[in-house]
Amino acid sequence: MNTSFLYAVLSLSALGASAAVILYFVAQKFKVIEDPRIDVVADLLPGANCGGCGFAGCRNMAEAIVKKENMDGFLCPPGGNETMKKIASDLGLEAKETEPMIAVLRCNGSLANAPQKVKYDGATTCAYVHMLFAGESGCPYGCIGLGDCVTSCLFDAINIDPVTNLPVISNEKCVACGACVKACPRTIIELRKKGKKDRRIFVSCINKEKGAVAKKNCSVACIGCGKCVKVCKFDAITMENNIAYIDFNKCTLCRKCVEECPTAAIHELNFPPRKPKSETADNNETAAETKSEN
């Protein structure tokens, strides 16, 4: 028999065996003792690592839950209640029910409502435009439309509508991780309650300027007239710095304020259509304007 063949087999086997022994001892020596439950929890989490829970990634959250042995204050937005319940049952804990949230764009300054006054040419990031100037429409609070939110979204839930130049948030895809809220330099996007049957009412404007000034740049700006505050029976609307805000915890979705708003700044989403009323909006508008100027 060819001896070189034998030598080769023997030396390789010896090499392999010694490597196995070394590896075994090294593995023993540097063993990391980890709670096995962390793996269980991490497997239940969606694994998107979106950061919506406030941790750097899914595994970090799993570690934190296991360490704390308590589910309070933990929420995986993409997983939602179901995931949290599953984790809770696996760990023998209890998970609080939270209402599903969704990202909402609080600006309606589309190309038609807030026409361009100047043209912007340069780096296509909202953050920079926000630093540089008020924006093409002149509204210093309005959406810039260059899509920092789109790039920040890991779930492909936001697109820029080419007609309005505003981002559109998908009802189905959005998991309310809050990445876009952080990415928007003007904090236009807010996380709000998803609402029954996805019905939501919100003020689609965050312009704190006086009514007349805001109106100059955008026809659907909140002018701070306060009509909605008066009409709301549930104390859900507050007026601060010339801007109305609807508290989604108090709002009962009665839609009174939507009808009252002279500039159509209050939006209703996913409601069945209602009978068109005879419009006195024009009169209201001018009345509101003169009022706010004082």
Binding site: G122, A123, T125, A127, Y128, M131, L132
Partner: peptide, 13 residues
């Protein structure tokens, strides 16, 4: 390329 635009943003951040 909008070099200074991006650098200015970086400076700010």
């Amino acid at each position: 390329r909008p070099l200074l635009d991006n650098i200015r943003l970086a400076k700010n951040k």
